[in-house]
Nucleic acid binder design. Structure first.
Lengths: 214, 214
DNA sequence: CCGTTCGTTTCCATCCGTGCAACTTTTCCA
DNA sequence: TGGAAAAGTTGCACGGATGGAAACGAACGG
């Protein structure tokens, strides 16, 4: 199955075949993403995406099961980098410090232009299929985050509550911050927004703000 | 459009027509759910579900766009009761107290038999479509929770960070507790499990457990 | 009691997803 | 370096899913 049998190293260079495969997948995902931004979700058809990427529409279906999946693919790839960014921090650093050091900046890189992200949110709000794909991507990110958190804390991701709980909460913070960055016009600094959310999580969720007012 | 025009009250009784509609929807959802539990996901086809509910397969498609949607429908309905249960608490109670008082017991009612829930988790882990539908249901629950939290705290769900952040984190706690209730064999008391997660959230996510061990 | 509205059902045209087989490119081993 | 094996791409064709139109029947409103 694996094409590079001559080298047992984990990071063996991909080989021409794998590189082409990754390139076409990247081209398809990017084409789908661009098409959605420029002409809306309805313009994203297997035919148009395949033509923009220079392959046949049949090949498109070899890579993605739906247009939504193709659109979110680029997004999903960026999400995966979050966990890697945390893993790249010094191993003896407390997890919370790593998260606070990495996530605000990483999130900024992920979401890209505010206008583009606004378009994505609008499309998602109008298409259940897009929402579902986005939630799937978020869920995968949660798994990756839980794994790296478990690595760092010496916990077992399958037997301890803490890694999944923390990962899920951090994801809620990321999602909340990103949403408000676009919809809530007042605050415009995404890293600060996320830092605020994460601080609340670490210190205990805001109890002062959550007393009944009536 | 609305069948009961003679009465402007919000809680006007549904009328026979609406009740029948709700009944067939309930029957379809229940049939799909039962079929999945007894014979697995593959046995859940529009034809079999419709036959079990006593309607035509075309009617099935009038209610649900896919078999996964039908299966999760029952589940989604139970989820929605979470927000209502919180709303039923005294209005002057702090939100955290309401959540801790309601959620552990409500979650127990929702998940039902442990064996059934285990089957659901297994099916979800094997079917991306089922996972997507489950995540959609969870997302809807998050919206409802954020709304009721905003009501109780006097915050604006669209302009304040806290309600969404808290709702998302609570959802992470619910999901984590339910998952470990099934997979982690040691702890068998679901309410205690959820209480532990919620306590961690309220007090600030576990920092003692999250120091690097290496 | 009658006209209207709405839900269900049957039929049907259409489209999408998928498997298959042929062709091309890359890889591997002698 | 040559050639066989493996993997990817493409067009075709078929089954099933998808959604609309019209007929029928039940429920609503007066």
């Amino acid at each position: 199955m694996e094409t590079n049998g001559h080298c047992g190293g984990m990071t063996a260079e991909p080989g021409l075949r794998a590189r082409k495969k990754a390139a076409t997948r990247l081209a398809l995902g990017h084409a789908a993403w661009s098409l959605m931004l420029e002409r809306g979700l309805d313009a994203v058809t297997p035919e148009s995406v395949a033509e923009a990427a220079g392959v046949s529409s049949r090949t498109f279906r070899n890579y993605f099961g739906s247009r939504e999946e193709a659109i979110v693919d680029e997004w999903s790839r960026r999400h995966a980098s979050l966990a890697d960014a945390v893993r790249a921090r010094p191993a003896d650093e407390p997890v919370w410090d790593s998260l606070l050091a990495v996530l605000p900046r990483a999130l900024t890189d992920i979401v890209g232009e505010r206008a583009d992200f606004a378009v994505l949110l609008r499309v998602i709000s109008e298409s259940p299929a897009m929402l579902a794909q986005n939630l799937l991507a978020l869920d995968r990110t949660g798994q990756l985050l839980a794994e790296v958190i478990a690595e760092r804390t010496g916990a077992d991701a399958d037997r301890d509550l803490a890694p999944r709980l923390l990962a899920g909460s951090v994801l809620a913070a990321v999602s909340t911050a990103a949403t408000f960055w676009v919809t809530g016009g007042a605050r415009t600094d995404l890293p600060d927004l996320l830092r605020e959310c994460l601080d609340h999580l670490r210190a205990g969720l805001p109890t002062a703000d959550l007393a009944p007012t009536a």
